[in-house]
């Protein structure tokens, strides 16, 4: 009777290693896919015949309109998508410097109105730019108050930042000029 071959044992060990290496390779190579998205919260439903709240003041209201050609009207003047973020930041941190911008960020409201013919891509770009503006303002305020970026703050600190610059978005009923 022959002794069991030592080489055969080594071969088994090698194949275990190979299988293990393959497993690790697949685990690393296959990124777990999670969807990314822009979050929003819709306003509660108000039946049409009910009295909807109306805005009476204009100074604290910043209006953005998008038409069916995906052009945007920023606070009354034609603008590019790239202008939205800096203008939002200026509008929020105005503190009474310009009469047509917000007197106090706690009262500032951004209003979006689109057309029924607006492309979703254009709408989401505008939405994204508004959020980018707010995020930039929040981050700057967090740095100034707590010396940290928003991501490193505790919950009460985040709440205090968001109380100073509340994200007040108003979406008007869409226009229906271009179909």
């Amino acid at each position: 009777m022959k002794k069991p071959d030592k080489n055969a044992k080594k071969g088994i060990l090698l194949s275990v290693d190979v299988a293990f290496a393959l497993l690790i390779f697949w685990v690393v190579a296959q990124a777990i896919h999670t969807d990314t998205a822009i979050d929003t919260i819709l306003p509660p439903y108000v039946p049409e015949h009910a009295d909807s709240p109306r805005c009476h003041y204009t100074g604290n209201l910043f209006s953005i309109k998008i038409n069916s050609e995906n052009e945007i009207l920023l606070h009354g003047s034609l603008a590019e998508y790239a202008d939205i973020k800096p203008t939002i930041i200026e509008f929020l941190t105005n503190y009474n410097r310009r009469p047509d911008y917000s007197e106090n960020p706690r009262l500032a409201v951004v209003s979006i109105q689109n057309d029924n013919g607006t492309d979703f891509g254009a709408y989401l770009t505008v939405y994204n730019e508004i959020k980018a503006g707010y995020n930039a303002v929040w981050d700057a305020y967090a740095q100034q108050q707590f010396g940290k970026s928003m991501a490193n703050l505790q919950q009460w600190q985040i709440d205090s930042v968001k109380a100073e610059f509340p994200l007040l978005l108003s979406e008007s009923e869409p226009t229906n000029f271009g179909g």
Binding site: G117, F120, Y123, P174
Partner: peptide, 24 residues
């Protein structure tokens, strides 16, 4: 187009499903 999306949003508001995430 936003027309159809607005209709969907209105229906979602009616059933009080107000957290909406636009995938991007």
């Amino acid at each position: 187009k936003m027309g159809i999306i607005t209709k969907v949003k209105t229906e979602l508001r009616k059933v009080n499903l107000r957290k909406v995430s636009y995938l991007a």
